[in-house]
Amino acid sequence: MMRSLLAATSLVAVCLLSACDKPPRQRPTERSVLLAEVAPAPGAIASVLGQVRQAQRATLSFDMAGRVTSMAVHPGDRFVAGQVLATLDPVPARLRLTQARSEALAAHGESLERAEQLRQQTALFDDGAASQSSLTQARAADQVARGKAAAADAAVELAQRDLERSRILAPFAGTVVTRMAEPGSDLSAGQAVLAVEGEGELEVVASLPAALVSGLTVGDTAQLVGPDATAVSVRLSHLSTHLERGAITEGIFRVVAAPGRLSPGQWVQLRLAGKSASASYVAIPLTAMVPGTPAGNAAVFVFDVAHGQVVHRPVTVVATNGDRAVIGTGLSAGERVVAAGTAFLTDGQAVREFDGDSGLENH
């Protein structure tokens, strides 16, 4: 009995000693954060990216199937309007044209014969030597023959058109962008052969946030900032009503006067007029945006003063203006957000406001 009591006492002592050896449970680290006040952004200038392209461009192909016999141009080559750019083997088209012309001759011969028969039946009917039924049959045969002749003439025109279109002619003066076929290739009807662009007016295509589109109309002007920092005027010419992923839509801006080094394929900045930003929008530092959020989404950490912690909150970014992000939904003026170091925070983390001289402006 005494031995059992001693063993139990020893076990309790070991447990107590083990508990004393465990490190104390650590509380979540309280971070010091720099806060920025959410401010109204009436009349903000929205800034979006756009890509320059030629307003005049085309993807060229042959109307019929066939084998490519020649390609006269390569990517980067310049051409003039009407220049031959590529050709198909013309022999099949020539044979079809010859066949169509022969069938047309036969159809017109039959039409002449049926017309003569109708003339004879009409004369006999007038003399009382032919019945009404014979005259009706002659008229029907004449009409059928006329129809066949007309169809044969159309077939000749189509065959002639196919022969002419066995060559691709440049629709305008410009430059070859892409060549998608080589001599000897067998192509199906409508298969792309060349992508070309003109040398005239430039345009900029941009993806516009849905919240921004509500303040835009066709004809509005904006400023394009080129690669040499030259700003020129552009005009909104087309605005899609379809929202991609429910968040953006396409707008096309015509360049009124292009800066010297502007060329198709370049990315440029578009600055839209202030009316596109509603008075309900607010602005925060770009550094307040949480990095690593999924494409098309954005988030910030809002300071909950009552509980001394931060709250992760999704927001809608309408545009950027310098070092500020214009927010459409998710924030209200007067709230405060973490202005830096958001990558090191978690939702609900305890924080305290940084009150030292950081050298940073608290907006």
Rank of each mutant, 00 (worst) to 15 (best):
P171G: 15
L270C: 04
A155I: 01
R31G: 06
L202M: 12
E30G: 10
D162P: 10
D153L: 06
S358Q: 05
G330S: 05
G174V: 01
L360K: 11
L224R: 03
T87W: 00
M71A: 08
H312S: 12
A195W: 01
L270F: 08
A173S: 15
V177A: 10
P285F: 00
S358M: 12
R101D: 13
L345H: 10
T316A: 03
A340N: 10
S4K: 08
K148C: 15
P314K: 09
L11I: 06
R165G: 02
D228V: 07
L158F: 07
A222I: 04
E244T: 02
P92K: 05
E250S: 05
Q121L: 12
H108I: 11
L105M: 03
E244L: 14
A107I: 10
S4I: 05
P264N: 09
H307Y: 14
A210I: 15
Q143H: 07
G215R: 01
L60R: 04
G260M: 05
V80Q: 14
V91I: 13
S240I: 02
L118T: 05
T136S: 06
Q132P: 00
V91M: 02
G296H: 13
Q269N: 12
R235Q: 12
R96P: 03
P291H: 09
G128K: 00
K22R: 14
P75H: 11
A170Q: 13
F253V: 00
K275M: 01
R139N: 12
G246K: 10
L194H: 08
Q223L: 08
V232Q: 14
P314V: 04
L5S: 12
A288S: 13
V144S: 09
T293G: 11
A288K: 09
G174Q: 07
A299Y: 11
A46V: 00
I252C: 15
F301D: 13
D228Y: 14
S47G: 04
V326D: 07
T221M: 01
A44Y: 01
E164V: 13
I252K: 11
V337E: 04
Q266P: 05
T98N: 06
R114G: 01
L169Q: 14
E113V: 04
G330D: 11
A106I: 02
P23R: 10
A325H: 03
V38R: 07
G66S: 03
A65H: 05
L49F: 04
R96F: 12
F344T: 10
G308H: 08
Q349C: 03
S276K: 04
I45A: 07
F303Q: 00
R161A: 09
K22N: 08
A152T: 03
E37T: 12
D186M: 14
K22P: 07
H242V: 01
R67F: 08
V326T: 07
Q137N: 14
V310E: 10
E103K: 06
Q349L: 02
G190F: 01
Q54N: 03
A340C: 13
T98H: 01
A13L: 05
Q26S: 11
Q349E: 12
V337D: 05
M289P: 15
Q56L: 09
P294R: 13
A279C: 02
R271A: 02
Q83K: 13
L262M: 04
A8C: 05
V337A: 07
A258Y: 11
E250K: 01
D153T: 14
A258S: 11
A319T: 08
I168K: 15
A151Q: 07
R352H: 06
V144Q: 03
V196P: 02
I168Q: 10
